[in-house]
């Protein structure tokens, strides 16, 4: 029983921390990208890449939890 609790807790922590980190990271990148796009809208692709990069960590956290 205790093992299961620990396992679930571990999973939950993995999702939570990774999710929080991703959210914060995307926030930073998004703010910056917004600024760039207002001046150079044609850089959408590059900016999207930079904004989405921190999101990857969230997915990894999710997978780890599984």
């Amino acid at each position: 029983m205790e093992g299961l609790v620990l396992a679930l807790l571990g999973g939950a922590i993995a999702v939570f921390l990774a999710g929080i980190g991703s959210a914060v990271g995307i926030g930073y990148a998004g703010t910056a990208a917004n600024g760039v796009l207002s001046e150079q809208p044609e850089k959408f692709g590059t900016m999207l890449l930079l904004v989405a990069l921190p999101g990857t960590q969230g997915i990894y956290g999710f997978l780890t939890a599984l």
Binding site: E42, G45, L48, L49, A52
Partner: peptide, 16 residues
């Protein structure tokens, strides 16, 4: 959309 842009487009797409 993100999957198309980051995983798919980045392999071959030339924009501009």
């Amino acid at each position: 959309s993100r999957l198309q842009y980051l995983e798919f487009f980045s392999k071959f797409y030339v924009s501009g």
